[in-house]
Amino acid sequence: MVSYIIRRTIMAIPLLFGITILSFAIIQAAPGDPTSLMMDPSMKPSDKEAFRERYGLDEPIHIQYITWLGNMAQGDFGDSIIKRGTPVSELIMNRLPNTLLLMLVSTILAILIAIPFGIYSAMRPYTKLDYTVTVTSFLGVATPNFWLGLMLIMFLSVTLGWFPTGGVATLNADFSLWDRIHHLILPAFVLAVADMAALTRYTRSSMMDVLKQDYIRTAMSKGFKEKKVVLKHGLRNGMIPIITIFGLMLPSFIGGAAITERVFAWPGIGLLFIESAFQRDYPVIMALTVISAVFVVIGNLLADILYAVFDPRIEY
């Protein structure tokens, strides 16, 4: 097992190389650079050149890449070009906790709601409740996050005034836990809806498959009540395919919340990603890309390890 993890980690290195090379090239290929967006139009071309020189933007692209790679290997993501020399790591560390909090809460919310409903749907397929769950989850998948977010802001925040319209906390107020939770509810719910819907469908189909198996009939023939059979004998088998979904969900912790963060003005990583992409803030974009890529690799690795934990038939 340990040797498998080491092997997989080593195998991830060329993958990360490929990802950084590609993203570096793609960003550079996009028209414009930081100077074209931030500079005063009346600025002299010579000053512009001086600025480019200062940030190494005048070098050929492969030299820029190697310089960046060398710095990153030493743990230095560089400074933001737009935000006047703020270290990228500081920018990210300021935002990351917000995003992680949002994603964690919404994921837990999604799991807590989706898995019980998925299981129940699978136990009583083609009943009224199953159809209700199915239709609701299709609606959930089909509803765009931003639209749902805007609607909720409009009705619950603006019209009824029950929730704040955005942000992580009331501005200029002392820290209060309730205030933070109050701000978290709407964005977390909006973000959870899509995951919830997908997860319900996956759980239902996986559990329906499991409940048809012979070993479920064996468990029934032992005299256990249906609930115990489903939860003890069914769920552990039914969760095996769901693990893949969790593995795929992990990288979306970084980028997946971008639109929701934007709608709710939630100062997280996703919002930072969008801002820096528009401003061609290369060091920030690259740092976030690398982090996302690492998350993808970790997510897949974690899924593979969890497989072995849940399914004794798998050995590495």
């Binding site: 012979d214 070993y215 468990a219 399914d311 038939r313």
Partner: peptide, 8 residues
Amino acid sequence: MTSLNPVL
């Protein structure tokens, strides 16, 4: 072959 629960 399939009557025993594979994960227990």
